[in-house]
Write a protein that binds this DNA or RNA. Structure first.
Lengths: 336, 336
DNA sequence: CTGTTAGCGCTTTCAT
DNA sequence: ATGAAAGCGCTAACAG
């Protein structure tokens, strides 16, 4: 039925150990023997059983990554960064989607740990005590990627969300805007939603612009919620001249919400956001936004994880990658 | 160090077999014993080792899915369908991205098979002889999902790409268009690129419109290539009045390429495509497109796979799901 | 350079 | 209802 290492050994006239050696590229095998074994493998169509290997060696050479939402382009980009580095270090990666649901995140973490991954990458999403608890039961290294824990105890790679939001809003202020509304993500999410909201407030404060509650709407990071929030702003007697959206997707919603109401962007209202996803160029006017280096976040966090898995010492286990304003066409100066 | 089933057995004062039974929900355990075991598990923080279990039982309750491009929203949607059904049947799924590269697809298939998945879903992408060869070495069921093999020998779930393209172009013709250009995907891909191209040709033919080679440009399914193709069409002395793009993303590129050149959509040129991705509503004018039931493709293929894994008999192992025209704002009648 | 021999942690007959 | 024991397929000392 299934051909095992034992079958190969018999076919090649050597011991299992020798077959194991050639399969694992152990140099201590005579070239001639190696050849014999390879031939036997070929002849029998032998495929090593990774499960048995994992049990015997206590290593699976695979790292698990939990991705909060597979449909989110940003996370996809992070995943690409992870993969490229993982391949470089000969790790397999198994992706598990958590569908934006906390219970599923916890379940997926446990599943991955049961599967004996050699390390875990937890991407995006809020890190609650429950998460921490699940992480604690693990004896493999875990790094947070595109998120952080509030306590700051875990290795992580992220950007400075508060600072990115601050820079975006400051850009608007620099263009002369004083009536700046925000379409926020959920404030319950400390890692992203709340941090970006804080950046908005700080930029206002620094410029001496009073904070107005009616200038903030909470969306769900999605396009439709950007439209809805914008429609709300348009009903205000005192309309904003600029909108800061916490994500590109909501910003595109804002642009369309504005345009559908016959308002020119950026002629009458400017729009800015944070992300610089691929979509930012796929809208007219093209979106001015603060870029997050998603690919790098993935790459750096995977690199960090490899070090941790090899028990190498790491200088700094909490890295913050720089962000940067990308100017396109959705921001213009405020009318005097 | 790591706590094993043996530790739990000792702690609870029972045998390994009994612990195994309660962990696996075997009814043949006295409630009282069950309770004792659960307490021991709790006290020790026992987590079953899926690798050991997999080796002993020769089942991993996980299915591998290879996804050609994690950044593609359509595939993400298929993946969601897969997941929902997998959860329902208590299978874990592990996603492996193949980065649109054939060699990586083959490698990933082999990795998954080595990991002893109980079944495999191969999503999108062309199925070559090399693929078939890799599939053949497997003794677990495999189903193609959002693609098919040319020979038609493998279980698969897909839509009728040729028919979808035919319907899209026919819609244009119904609106009075006769100068219809196409932005195709690569013709090398029989499952999608070529099939949609064939649909375009057949619709033209049926309407008695001669096929013109200069009205077809091959793109790479991406936004930018949609723009480029459109710019090419605009340079023609004899411009098309409508553009059929093989994917939404290229269609959005077409819309913007047109608008950037000062051409009204759909006023002067109509645009239609196939996909109905989320993006179709995230553009102005909103895109008229033929919907593919991506989620259902995922769900149905996973369901099919569960049947195959349980060795249930299946009536039809090659299913084609229906498509449907979704009318939005990017198509208008041809000027008389 | 190669073979022997214990396990890795769990499931699964087979007894009892 | 429970336990004993034989593996699952492979790796990793250890010995030679």
């Amino acid at each position: 039925m299934t051909v095992t290492i034992y079958d190969v050994a018999r076919e090649a006239g050597v011991s299992m150990a020798t077959v194991s050696r050639v399969v694992n590229n152990n140099p201590n095998v005579k070239p001639q023997t190696r050849k014999k074994v390879f031939e036997a493998i070929e002849r029998l169509g032998y495929r090593p059983n990774a499960v048995a290997r994992g049990l015997a060696s206590k290593k699976t050479t695979t790292v698990g990554v939990v991705i909060p939402d597979i449909a989110n382009a940003n996370f996809a980009e992070v995943a690409r960064g992870i993969e490229d580095i993982a391949n470089m270090y000969h790790y397999n990666i198994i992706l598990c989607n958590a569908d934006m649901r906390k219970d599923k995140e916890i379940r997926v973490i446990n599943t991955l740990l049961e599967k004996q991954v050699d390390g875990l990458l937890f991407m995006g999403g809020t890190v609650t005590d429950e998460h921490l608890q699940a992480f604690n039961t693990s004896n493999v290294p875990i790094v947070l990627c595109a998120t952080t824990d509030e306590k700051g105890n875990m290795p992580s790679v992220d950007i400075d969300h508060e600072g990115a939001a601050f820079d975006a809003v400051t850009k608007l202020i620099g263009e002369g805007h004083r009536s700046i509304a925000m379409i926020s993500g959920t404030l319950k999410d400390p890692a992203i939603g709340y941090a970006r909201f804080q950046g908005y407030k700080r930029a206002l404060e620094k410029a001496g612009i009073p904070y107005r509650e009616d200038f903030v709407r909470v969306g769900n990071y999605k396009y439709e919620s950007g439209i809805e929030a914008t429609q709300y702003f348009l009903e205000l007697s005192d309309r904003p001249t600029a909108i800061f959206a916490a994500t590109d997707e909501m910003a595109i919603g804002a642009i369309h919400g504005l345009q559908d109401a016959g308002i020119a962007v950026p002629g009458q209202v400017s729009v800015i956001s944070v992300d610089n996803s691929r979509m930012a160029s796929m809208v007219r006017p093209q979106l001015t936004t603060v870029a997050q280096p998603m690919y790098d976040i993935g790459a750096v966090s995977m690199r960090l994880l490899t070090k941790l898995m090899k028990k190498e010492s790491v200088e700094n286990a909490r890295v913050t990658l720089p962000h940067e304003l990308v100017q396109r066409q959705s921001v213009a100066g405020a009318k005097a």
